[in-house]
Computed example of a mutant assay.
Amino acid sequence: MAKVWVVVEAKEGQIKKVTYEMIGLASQLGEVEAVVVGSGVKDLAPGLGAYGVGKVYVVDQPELAEYTTARYTRVLAELIGQEQPAKVLIANTAQGRDFAPRVAQRLGLGQISDVTGYEQGQFVRPIYSGKALAQAEAVAAQAIITVRPNVFNAVSAGAGTAEVVERTVALQPNDLLEVVREVAKQVSVRPELTEANIICSGGRGLKEPANFKLIEDLADVLGAAVGASRAAVDAGWRHHSFQVGQTGKTVSPQVYFAIGISGAIQHLAGMGSSKVIVAINKDPEANIFKVADYGIVGDLFEVVPVLTEELRKALA
């Protein structure tokens, strides 16, 4: 059976949910193995066996404490070159999108990006800003696959432990040119945008930044993340880290609230794979209603407070 690697993505010592989603996909492709890269991360490896991972390769070195493109590319390219897995699954996050194509280029491998499905031996991915779906097949013996978070079912924990193989990779002088001086963190009690099950996003229809309080109140009732359209971000109402869309973050929540958002194609490209889309807009011709599962034509300043209050009562 072909070996399929899952590159574990972790943050502050915690494995991110997308890793377990990739393990679920990998189990359909072959014998599941994993790779953990970082500093102080070896304790993450054994527990992966409970999710069906047979072997975990661990590269735990002080130089890998902070992510840099060159170092992760070096480590993964060397490991893949040595062990020759058939498929390597990498999360289609900001970090994964950064190093995955570099690993593919260094090894001369093909890459299928932003996979959202797997059907009859073919990978499914959106094209033309999400307006169509393409089927792609990895015909070579090896390939890099990047997987969109929140689209595959995460595997549940069972029994078992994984075989842990510790490796050391000699980093070259050129790999050490990037130096991380500081990591700026945004502290929030709300879920991380790309992993949230529910997202409440606001757009230009909010009229001014202070009115994002309406979005935040609704999000807090639902335990949701807060997002924003490009128009709201360009206006300075929200930091770019909140932006959902082709030039922002790609999300796939169970429920996506688009409030005061017209539905420009670049925004739809970032949230079109949401399971359920709820649109609130006073313009009945707004493009967002073409993709919405539920739509409310009305003034958001009247609709959202009532919706928030009714949901608060229902969830109390």
Results as ranks from 00 to 15, higher is better:
L193D: 09
I127N: 01
N211A: 05
K131S: 06
P126I: 03
G298H: 01
A91C: 07
G117Y: 03
D299I: 06
D217Y: 01
D234M: 11
Q28G: 09
R230S: 00
K185E: 15
R167V: 09
P101D: 13
K213I: 05
G160W: 08
Q28M: 13
F152C: 02
A225I: 07
R238P: 02
I215W: 07
D217L: 01
L193S: 08
N153D: 13
K207R: 12
S274I: 11
Q135C: 12
K213R: 03
D114I: 01
V115L: 08
V53D: 12
T19F: 01
E195V: 07
A10P: 12
I215M: 02
G203L: 01
V7P: 12
I215H: 07
S39Y: 08
V179T: 15
D220A: 05
Q135P: 10
D217N: 00
V151D: 04
V276H: 09
V221W: 03
E63Q: 15
Q135F: 14
A184G: 13
I215T: 02
A91F: 10
E216D: 13
F301Y: 05
L64Q: 11
K313G: 12
A225G: 03
G236C: 06
R97Q: 15
E33K: 06
V303N: 01
E31Y: 08
A136I: 11
T116N: 09
L25W: 00
Q120S: 13
L76I: 07
L177Q: 15
N174W: 12
G117D: 04
L109I: 08
Q28P: 08
